[in-house]
Write a protein that binds this DNA or RNA. Structure first.
Lengths: 99, 99
DNA sequence: AAAAGCACTTTGTAATACAAAGTAAATACT
DNA sequence: AGTATTTACTTTGTATTACAAAGTGCTTTT
């Protein structure tokens, strides 16, 4: 057996970033407040994790409006989808013998 | 969709502890140096993660000898196996829609 | 004009990770 | 006998990360 963790993506060590990514994989776009409620975290904390993911080019955002209220929606990028899937595959491989 | 991350176990956020657990799930017992080589980390770092897992009662250890050299082997506890499997199930559920 | 909502940024603190060095107990070399 | 080596740590120090709370700028609602 060789190193099982070397293919895990450090960005996805964080449970919150995992949660964000899984929400964005399933839903084509999710807005700030939906994510905040979904993950039950403060807005500052959410913003900082979104920033990390954005800097990695794993997500993108679009500022818009719902009616007259500002509304920022987030979605996953190709890069992000690829990285996330690779991480999941590495996880699966690592724990494959378990179930 | 409700909070996807609330059932994730914080102890398993760490890639190294994930690696230790996955090694121990697959192999009935693994010694210190095997783990160290497998995960490619320093002994101090490994010891501290083992301590965290031991304090959670997820692993147990047994001090012994190979020939005349000291040898500490680690294995998973019932509690640890249960917690790990629950974590994996939570992960699967979270990302189930992906693959 | 005041209050509230949105999506942040900034600030400060606490927790965590990690390498490196130190330690203890035993064995192995010279 | 004395020194070195190995194992499995513990301790120490530093850097990174997480997070809450407070503050900001813009807009809308009252």
């Amino acid at each position: 057996m060789k190193n099982p963790i070397e293919h895990l993506n450090k960005i996805f060590d964080s449970r919150i970033r995992l949660g964000i990514m899984s929400a964005l994989v399933v839903n084509s776009s999710v807005n700030f407040n939906e994510l905040k409620e979904l993950l039950d975290i403060t807005d500052g904390n959410l913003a900082s994790h979104l920033k990390t993911l954005d800097e990695a080019a794993y997500i993108k955002f679009q500022k818009g409006f719902i009616g007259r209220k500002t509304n920022t929606t987030y979605s996953i990028t190709k890069t992000g989808e690829k990285a996330f899937k690779q991480h999941l595959e590495a996880l699966e491989k690592m724990i494959g013998a378990v179930k």
